[in-house]
Simulated scan of single mutants.
Amino acid sequence: MTVDAAGYAVLERRGVVAVSGEDRAVFLQGLVSNDVTAVTDQRAAYSLFLTPQGKFLHDFILIGFGGALLLDPETERRADLLKRLKMYKLRSKIALEDRAESLRIVVAFGSGALAALGLPEEAGAARPFAGGVAITDPRLPALGARLILPVDGFDDALAALDAAGLARRTVTDYDRLRVTLGVPDGSADMIPDKAIPLENRLDALNAVSWTKGCYMGQELTARTKYRALIKKKLFPVTLDGPLPEPGTPVTLGDKEVGELRGGVDGHALALLRLADLEDATAPLTVGTTRLSWRAPEWDAPVVA
């Protein structure tokens, strides 16, 4: 099997939360960073739940399904998201439900994966699949597809993926692709209550609507953009030695210039100070390992 062969893997680290009821879109519209009114059963969006100060708390894909809006937060943190949503429910005519026991998340990726599922290379495009829904990743079509599939009949859904010509792969295979592309994944790469969306390139990953109006953290997110306050950016990096733990400082000589995030097989993400990259003449290191960085192809260059 080639490295980029089309395949799929069950993504246990993501669960499913449902928001139903007649006020579901209005309710979420005032809380999350993307335009919920554009989300339908055929159109998904990537979005964020931020603190009032514009810091990262949760990220998820939003899709219409069965008369509800489905979100796929991190499995281990979905209770926190539900708790925060309930705080703002007030008199809204909505119901909040944890559906992690009835719906599961699968990722399909690699060359030809979207075509095998009948999906276009158009961020957020969605279609029914095996009793659930298949979505061209709204962050970046190069990531492949996100599928939300019912637990009842899950084996049949996997058989349908096999029949579509997708090989069974591992989550490590998927993460290798994601990290190489430079795409962060929730709290594994962004520290809740501290990470700034634009530093992590989430605007370039279609997580923020600049025209929808107010939402939690909107004022400071907009100020960060329009006043050009970004001093750091997340970069895909390659290491020529052992991969240190996330949080290990990245240094330029004796100067600390950033911090390592998650990684796999010699590839990782690192949050680096832009001004230091512009003037870097010596190699960057993390621990005793040399590190090389590059700007992701899907985002505009930020340093010469």
Rank of each mutant, 00 (worst) to 15 (best):
D152S: 15
T211V: 15
Y215L: 13
I148V: 15
Y174P: 09
G217I: 10
R176H: 13
D156Y: 02
L149W: 01
D162F: 04
D162K: 07
A163C: 12
A157D: 00
R176L: 15
A160S: 11
T221F: 02
P184D: 02
S209V: 12
N206W: 07
V183S: 06
G217W: 01
R176C: 13
N200E: 11
A159E: 09
L161T: 06
N206M: 14
A164V: 06
L149I: 09
D193H: 10
L161G: 09
T170Q: 06
Y174I: 10
E219W: 01
K194P: 05
A188E: 05
G165M: 14
G153F: 02
R176N: 11
Q218L: 09
A167P: 09
A188R: 04
A163R: 15
W210R: 08
R201S: 14
P197L: 14
R146A: 14
I191S: 10
Y215W: 05
L166N: 03
G165Y: 02
V183W: 00
R178S: 10
M190A: 13
A157C: 04
D173Q: 08
D162A: 10
G182Y: 02
A204V: 06
F154Q: 10
D193G: 11
D189N: 03
T170F: 01
A188P: 00
A159D: 09
G217K: 05
D185A: 07
R168K: 08
T180L: 15
D203I: 12
D156R: 13
L198Y: 01
G182A: 10
D156L: 15
A157N: 01
T211W: 11
L161Q: 07
L205C: 15
S209Q: 07
D203G: 15
Y174A: 08
D203C: 12
A188N: 03
D203L: 14
R146S: 14
D193I: 09
R168V: 12
A164M: 07
D203H: 10
I148T: 12
T221Q: 02
A167C: 10
D185C: 03
Y174Q: 06
V171P: 07
V183A: 09
P184T: 03
L220I: 15
L147R: 08
A157G: 04
G165F: 10
L158Y: 00
D189H: 00
E199K: 08
L198H: 03
V179E: 08
G213R: 01
D152P: 11
D155G: 09
T211K: 15
G153A: 13
Q218W: 00
G217F: 02
R178Y: 09
L149D: 02
R178K: 13
V183N: 05
G186D: 01
V183I: 15
D185I: 00
P150Q: 07
D162Y: 02
Y215I: 14
A207E: 08
R168Y: 01
A195Y: 04
L198V: 10
V151T: 14
R168P: 03
G182C: 13
A160Q: 11
T180V: 13
D156F: 05
P184A: 11
L177A: 04
P150G: 09
T170Y: 00
P192M: 05
K194W: 08
